[in-house]
Amino acid sequence: MTLVFGVFLLTLLVIVAVAIVRSTNLFAAVMLSGIFSLLMAVNFFLLDAADVALTEAAVGAGVATVLFLSALALTAEHEQVRPGGAALQWLPLVVAFATGGLLIYATFQNPVIGDPNAPVHQHVAPWYLENTPELIDIPNVVTAVLGSFRGFDTLGEVFVVFTAGIGVLSILGLRHTLVEMTSAEIDARQRSLRHHLIPRVVGRGMVPFILLFALYVQFHGEYSPGGGFQAGAIAAAAIILYSLLEGDDRGRALVPEWLLQIMVASGALLFGGVGVVCMLLGGSFLDYSVLAEVPSEGQHLGLLLIELGVGITVSGVLLTVFHAFARRASR
C-alpha cells in the first residue's frame, strides 16, 4: 500500500516539475515549485525521513516561495516569449536526455529500495545506531549524528548559511537612507495586506502559535523530529508572515536590523564557542562529553547549545535575506 502511495506521489512530482518548466508565467512557476517542495516533503516522510520532511516543508514550501516571490516583484513576472522561443530547444534536450538515460541505465545496478543488505547500510550508520543510546543517550539519532558525531560538518554548514547571508547583504546593500514617506505613501508602496481585514486578523492570530511551534521544534528536537535548522526556518516564517501582513517597515520594527545582524553572527559564534570551550576543558573540538561530570549529560548540554546556535543563525539569515529583498521593493 505504501508502495502504491509512493509511486503515485513520485509521479505527481514529475508532472509538477514538467509543469514548472513549461510555464512561461513565472508567478505560476514559483507557486508550482511550492507544491513541488510539499510533495517532496511527503515523499521524504514516506521514506522514513521525518526530520528532512519537516525541513523541506518549512524551507522549501514556506521560505523559498516567499523569497522567489519577492525577487519576482523586483524583476519581471513573465518570461519573455520570443518568436519560436516557446518550442523545445533540441541541443539542451539531447544533453538532458542523454544524462537522464545514462542515470537510469546506472540504476539497474542499484540495490532495490529498502534492501537492508545495501552497501550504504553496512558501514558507519549501524555504528551510529548502536552507540547513540550509550554515548549520547537521546532518542533522535538524526540529531545525535547532526550535532555530535558529525558536529564539525554541521559547523561548516552553519558557516555556509552565515556566508550566504553576508553575501546577500553585500550585493543588495547593507544600509541605505530611507526617504521619509507619509504612512499613506508607505501603504500604497508596500503592497502589504494591511487593508485586507480577514487575512490580517487570521494571520496575526497565527503568528504566536507558529513561534510557539518553532520553540517546540527547537527544544524538543532531541526527542522527536526537529532541531535548530527546522526551528530557525519556522521562526523566520512566522516573522515573514507578520511582515507580509503588516508591511515590511513594521516587520523591521518588530525584529530590528541590528538585532538580526547580532543574531546572524552570534549563532555561528555560539556553535564555534562551544567547540572551543570543549577544548579548554581538556576535550577535543566539539567533544561535548567534557562539559559535565557525566559524559552523556555533557552531550545533552552541548547539543542544546549548538542547536540553539544553529536556530539563531538560520532564522537570522533567512530574515535578513527577506528584508534585503523587501526593502528593495519598497524603495
Binding site: 495586506l193 480577514i198 487570521v202 497565527m206
Partner: peptide, 16 residues
Amino acid sequence: VFLLVTSPTAAYALAN
C-alpha cells in the same frame, strides 16, 4: 482547528 481557520482565509484571499 488551524486548518479550519486558515483554509477559508486562504480561499478568501485568493478570490479577492
